[in-house]
Design a protein around this nucleic acid. Sequence first.
DNA 1: CCTCGCGCTTACCATCTGGTAAGGAGCCGC
DNA 2: GCGGCTCCTTACCAGATGGTAAGCGCGAGG
Lengths: 225, 225
Amino acid sequence: MVPARLAELVDMRQRMLAVATRLFAAHGFDGTTLQDVADAVGVSKPAVIHHFASKEALRAAALDALLDHWKQTLPRLLLAATATDDRFDSLIGELLRFFSSEPDRARLVLRELLDRPYEMGRVMGGAVRPWLAAIAAYVERGQERGRHHADADPEAYVLHVLSFAIAAIASRDVLAGALDRGPRGESPEARYERELVRMTRASLFTPAERTRAARPARRKTRRRR
Amino acid sequence: MVPARLAELVDMRQRMLAVATRLFAAHGFDGTTLQDVADAVGVSKPAVIHHFASKEALRAAALDALLDHWKQTLPRLLLAATATDDRFDSLIGELLRFFSSEPDRARLVLRELLDRPYEMGRVMGGAVRPWLAAIAAYVERGQERGRHHADADPEAYVLHVLSFAIAAIASRDVLAGALDRGPRGESPEARYERELVRMTRASLFTPAERTRAARPARRKTRRRR
DNA sequence: CCTCGCGCTTACCATCTGGTAAGGAGCCGC
DNA sequence: GCGGCTCCTTACCAGATGGTAAGCGCGAGG
């Protein structure tokens, strides 16, 4: 095979990671062969092994890259959303936009959750737990001020919101297929996501707070690339 | 291998289905070999092929059995929960108990959702849609009477509740690992499920209705086997 | 100009996979 | 008693899979 000179300039290792992430997300680790990855990248099978010692190493690398990306992005997102009281209610929207922009990553994480519960359990207990606690503390402050429902379990709440975002995005295309188009021509996916946001907000904010938060609407809807 | 006379009396086909469901749920379809199934049942590999023409047929049969079971059980459960206004708020609890009693089935459905989105999309559009509409109509009635939040999207709400129950149970063991034991020695799993129930209720019922529904608590907590 | 090493190739291999062929043990109706 | 049927076995197979061996092209450094 004659190497395409142009494509060779971009980092081959990262191209392989991106392709592997997409294929693992779509067909699962066991449902994806090294040949599939090699073909999709446009190289031979041993070329993949050359960069990642084994298929298992490729999986680990793809998962690491994914978690690294999240660890870099999510905290910034969450801290920004909890920095001022006013912006906290947009947390779900931000989270959903984040995962929505890369559904493959949501699907891959969900698959890892199913395929390797023990290892992912350690990840949960280690990496995400501190962030869970930090946001939960914010929710608790809101409870003390009467802004959040007093009977909520802050940590469990945040955990569910996170899992909702992942699971909802991972299965959005399938589940939204059971919905009709909305009254104003709204797409099923839009209805699906809007109701998810409403549910997470309504289950946290007390009524008075909810109407207050809903009023100053017009916030910038930055499109994430 | 000498056949165990006792075990042979129970229906071999159903034993295979049960084992396949468990293994597919745990390791996925591609992560499970016919040999795995045969070993777990205690027969030879061609014995599995004898009952199910192919591995694919085994998957289809396992999924069919699962969906049949749900189609027989869930409607009864849901109709009972929506028959009288008072009992509707226990719907989530019932749903959760239902899936909780067979987490393997929840996991298998989640995997199918990821592995074969197109086929599952047809299932959603076909089999579950009527039930979705029926329960959504109930939610709408509640909206007209001011019992349910007026800004809720009934169909999307019910869809999310269903997906919450499936996703939450499928990943419960992993996610609950990020939680501590509750104040009164409550297990992380219990906290996890209780908060899920609270969230789904709080996001549907209006405040006045919520307190009213919470009061006559003491309902029978039948244990499902 | 040479050679050294990186990134990739082709050729190959042991193992495993889903599936087939053929036959044997027990049981049923006759 | 016996053919035939059901359920299951052992023996086997072609293809795919993850991974290895060896070598080739080519750019960098001496």
